[in-house]
Design a protein around this nucleic acid. Structure first.
Lengths: 207, 207, 207, 207
DNA sequence: GATGAATGAGCCTTCATTCAT
DNA sequence: GATGAATGAAGGCTCATTCAT
């Protein structure tokens, strides 16, 4: 008979991950100490180690559970939209909103994670999975638009999707390093305009 | 006769910076040790410390002298081209070529640097300067294209330039973390196509 | 009806001691963890601590109850033999047999214990008692042999007994550390031969 | 051009080993901390780690350089004696003298080392080498005595030598754990008497 | 000027022991 | 009575920086 309920364990695990996220995005992975995270989670170091057996495992869990779920999250939040173009626009909106409002730390986590990925294979794999998942989803939207005759026929879904997402992550990373002069909304609008002019054939613009 | 001439000092300084770059992009700033860099530069640690009084100074010098010079480098290498559109395309080409061939380490340095920027104000400033400089240069090209009536009149030079560069750096970062399925050439071509459809009014395309 | 009968408690205590012995001789006292022992005993750490209030107490109990009983064990198992020489030979046989077959762990426990004795006074005392007890018993056999005129008259029972036991423990320790080329049976036979030539006067040999 | 002379480095290395020996035999390997050793050697931990890259390496060096040289030491110190029997007696004397006077710590080191050998393969190997070397040397003496017709013809050199050395180490270990009632000189004399009665045929005793 | 040995603070991780449930 | 989660002190080891030679 375990002393604490599984629910309690799960709640504590989440608390630790939140603390780790907060500390990692503030100090970076290497500079952050396990003690910092324990303190942030209001726990002793020893207790923390019962949940995550290494410092690296904390980072890895964050990559998998915070970044890695982006694809399914995007899919779920745009499922209701039928028109491919509208869905694409919705994605861009989601990204900028998420960055600014809902998950302001995710961008920083992405940056810190990328830096660590150079050295750490499992983290790199986690990022690959997330990127590949997002590309696949967005490429799917584009491919559908092409199939339905809504989008320009000679577009390459994979490449355009990768480009779009690299841009999104590039913006995210610049945004979180505090680069000035990056106005998210304006960039989102310009991006949509650029995509429209590229993907949507003139006749379809109904203008 | 002084033992070391200023020229020799300068050469040694460069050698140290090259070593630091090599080590930083291989291991990351925090994991790299001063000893690693000294060894790579075939120098004693003591000697190295006569050139750079702290480990942080090495990084900072790299940011300023390797990343910070990107704007002027771009300007110099596209100066000969007159037509704004051609110059823009040249920029994109430069980026992909540089990434793959000429300075394959720069992308990694950018990533490592960004990760440190979270913590280190001076590094952040260095990145700002680089980004601002590049945006200014690219925005200038676009503004000129608009002024000459070559580009779409309602485009916002600053925003589009920022978008373009965020995408470039996003691609760079994904490229260097080894994300698969990122094919630089195809992405460059799609990017050019996208920009063309956005910036160049239809009538001009037929010209 | 009490939940645990004294008999059950005693059985559990023994199980814990067995587990502790197993773990200690496998890993050594310092490297072994209380958790290891609890696991081996199929018990929770908390439960274990109800039987032995400290890790050191486990070791101490082993020294007293496993090693410390060697004298009486030897006495009991050789009681039936009357002739001093035969009893001495029986002792040597007991030692080699015990080492190889019956209690292969005892030798290791002896070693681990000796190493801890350097630091831990109570353990040292336990070893003293065991050694003194064995010496006393063996010296008694020799003294009796001398008194009966069976053994060489100028032998010093205490010293010869100590020598004999030091050799036995020396062999034991080498045996358990896995020193090769130590063939227990051959050594036992040579030891008996050596003792015979020393203790038994020539005339008696021809008898 | 190294900053310090090789001689200085060697002297410091020896100082560290002496300190390690002192601390290990006082506290045991596991309880001793690297800090203890550094302090005893009047050095910082960091400096110590320039000479020995792990705590285990300290122990290993001691095993190889303090214990492992016993065979050659014995050989050198008994070389001058021609008669096998005299040489054997000389060995026993050497052992008891060394234990009491010259290298009082070696016995303790042997004990601490044996305890660690159970777990640590390289240390075990070091002990094997020492034991095998000593056995070989002593067996050589005995074999020579047999060949010359001085010793009992049916003695097995290897086994008797092993027995002799196990006894010696057994005594050493009991001696250093502070077991009372172990009088080294008396034991040495009894041992010699026992060996004499076993190895030397009556006629040769010239009695 | 150059060298690399020395310093020592600090980090990740472990584990004996306690105690809420 | 039993459980095992929590505590926190301590240990091995690293590395930026200094400085005697």
């Amino acid at each position: 008979m375990p002393k604490v309920s599984p629910a309690h364990k799960e709640r504590r695990r989440e608390a630790i991950l939140n603390a780790a996220m907060e500390v990692f995005i503030t100090k970076g992975y290497q500079v952050a100490t396990v003690g910092d995270i324990a303190q942030q989670a209001q726990l002793s170091v020893g207790a923390l180690y019962r949940y995550f057996p290494t410092k690296a495992d904390l980072m890895l869990a964050l990559v998998r559970e915070r970044l890695g779920r982006a694809p399914e999250l995007f899919a779920r939040m745009t499922r209701s939209v039928d028109d491919p173009w509208e869905r694409l626009v919705r994605c861009v909106e989601l990204f900028t909103t998420a960055l600014r409002v809902r998950h302001p730390g995710t961008g920083r986590l992405l940056l810190v994670t990328m830096a660590e990925a150079v050295q750490h294979g499992e983290i790199r794999q986690g990022l690959h999975d997330r990127f590949a998942g997002l590309v696949e989803y967005v490429a799917g939207i584009i491919a559908e638009g092409i199939a339905r005759g809504r989008f320009r026929q000679d577009a390459d879904p994979q490449t355009v999707a990768a480009l779009l997402l690299a841009m999104a992550d590039g913006v995210a990373v610049y945004w979180v390093t505090g680069t000035p002069d990056v106005e998210l909304n304006a960039m989102g609008q310009s991006l949509v305009a650029m995509l429209r002019s590229y993907l949507l054939p003139e006749p379809l613009l109904k203008e």
